[in-house]
Design a protein around this nucleic acid. Structure first.
Lengths: 325, 325
DNA sequence: GTGAAAGCGCTAACAT
DNA sequence: ATGTTAGCGCTTTCAC
């Protein structure tokens, strides 16, 4: 089942067989038919590894995400895989578990066996990132030098969330910070900015891990403040808050309004449905793949990062502030 | 940055450089040091593709799951990636979107560039599966010939769920079927068996897609029956039911008891917390990788499938049947 | 302990 | 339109 076996059996040279599979039009119809027949008979398929070596490109892409099982990462990964598939690329996936060291290690391990690499919310050092240089690279939710990147700007939408709460009469709105990084920075900026514009006193708690359990923990901390509304780092944290409130016999949004960020499927599954800032996860994955393919093909990408917009989705976890009894 | 460049610079032959990276002990300490120094200086790393070609193995594994973004699949994938990483394997991931054709296509595309392939709940034909033969293969949640597989048997645990409900006084318990396949078959078997043992009349609805939205739809169908309890195909469907019930002003478990299957993180995030059958997703992923590595290494695996046990987790979505007013 | 040489399976000039 | 040739970068006998 090597190219030579097929060539011999079809009475042609290996080069011809190769052509049949790479540029069929360059081969006479008759010859092509014969080769194809033999290939079929012998169950021959060009060996992708050998092909990669000879061609100098692999037909593979790689992605490293913070956490494969996280629903946001998973949605991005799915979109990336599908978009990559449309162009015939297979996908390596690995999770860093939020460890800069593992992340860097994976990126380095993948680099030589992919045509391009996509790093989602990478937390490795700038230098480590630059050292990946020779491999076509696209960053998601991180800016560095002129590296191509796709970035979702939640600043404005988080601002909208705060305005939304203020319009409902809330004067004490607390922000539950997530792990330090690009994403949290944008959200803080939106929160602080809106508070300033509205004349509210910003109050931040955290940082918390972007987990349900940390949301549960955060809830009690929130209740120890005069806050009547919470903007959480993401949906999971927000749902953690929701749960703890219910357990303490409080009602959402009557006693406390809660806003999340991400708009994962979770947001519509909980009671009450979560008001949240929608981040275009799938779209950002698809966009990143297209940028990556551009880089690989040597096409000039847009200069500067591709900016995607977030959007406030109002559901039932936010409501008018309760009049103090 | 090829092996020859390093060899030249270190004043040794390429073979020696190769040995330094593959069997360091076979090289004199002094030589090894020199080679390593040069390699470091030149940022040399053995090219994995060339290595694969020469060695005849790639150091990669592949997995194809029904849906990358599904939280159960995602947990399996994460566990597989981590376990594979422990043995130095990188992982190709692809999703079939429940399409037998795509699934088969991916499996075939991956096969020649991985050392082993893992198929989760595959739905391609037996013959297509057999044709993948030459590549080391492990199946998850599917049985075929003597192919190695890891299977979670939910039969017994679903039976426990029914017994649990019966003990709470429920006599009308409906099962919401999922998509036809191995998983659903096991659950039906557990449900039917328990109903028979307990003298209850089995009542099945569906099949439904294993989605939240189908759970929402199913809820109304359930309410059109005399059922006081529901066993849903999985947690997502169960949560869909939960949501619709709340919207219709009913209370869980007072008006209806609900049981899910999977024990995804969702189960503890909803209100009330979901009683569910826990499937050991991560463990099954890890076990599958170990089996796969055994096959690859030519070690004799266990004959027959590896059976993992499911377990009923009782939470707050099930309670005593309400006495008819 | 180290080197020379052959080859993994394919592609891509270059010839014809 | 097809064949010849020379690698892609590495590993691995087989000598020394």
């Amino acid at each position: 089942m090597s190219i030579r076996a097929v060539a011999a059996r079809a009475g042609v040279s290996p080069a011809t067989v190769s052509r049949v599979f790479t540029q069929p039009d360059a081969v006479a119809l008759e010859t092509r038919r014969r080769v194809l027949a033999v290939a079929d008979e012998l169950h021959y398929t060009p060996h992708p590894v050998a092909r990669s070596l000879a061609r100098g490109c692999t037909g593979n892409l790689g992605i490293v995400v913070p956490d494969i099982a996280n629903s946001f990462s998973a949605v991005v990964t799915k979109a990336v895989q599908q978009e990559a598939a449309r162009d015939g690329y297979a996908l390596f996936v690995s999770g860093s578990d939020e460890l800069a060291r593992d992340e860097e290690q994976w990126a380095r391990a993948m680099a030589p066996q992919v045509d391009g690499l996509m790093l989602v919310s990478p937390l490795m050092s700038d230098d480590a990132l630059r050292a990946l240089g020779p491999t076509p690279l696209v960053l998601s939710n991180r800016l560095l030098d002129a590296l191509p990147s796709v970035v979702t700007d939640a600043t404005e939408a988080v601002g909208h969330a705060v305005e939304h709460l203020a319009a409902l009469g809330h004067r004490e709105i607390v922000y539950l910070a997530g792990p330090e990084g690009f994403a949290n920075t944008m959200r803080v900026r939106g929160y602080d900015g809106a508070c300033r514009r509205l004349g509210l006193r910003p109050r931040r708690l955290g940082p918390f891990n972007a987990r349900f359990s940390d949301g549960v923990r955060a809830a009690d901390l929130v209740l120890a403040t005069p806050a009547t509304a919470v903007v959480a780092y993401n949906d999971e944290v927000a749902v953690g808050v929701l749960n703890r409130l219910v357990d303490r016999g409080l009602r959402v949004p009557d006693d406390l309004s809660v806003v999340g960020v991400d708009d994962t499927s979770l947001a519509e599954m909980v009671t009450p449905r979560l008001t949240t800032v929608r981040l275009p996860a799938a779209e950002s994955g698809r966009a990143a793949v297209r940028m990556l393919l551009d880089v690989i093909a040597g096409r000039p990408g847009p200069d500067g990062p591709l900016l995607l917009q977030a959007e406030l989705i109002v559901r039932s976890s936010t409501g008018p502030v309760r009049v103090h009894e």
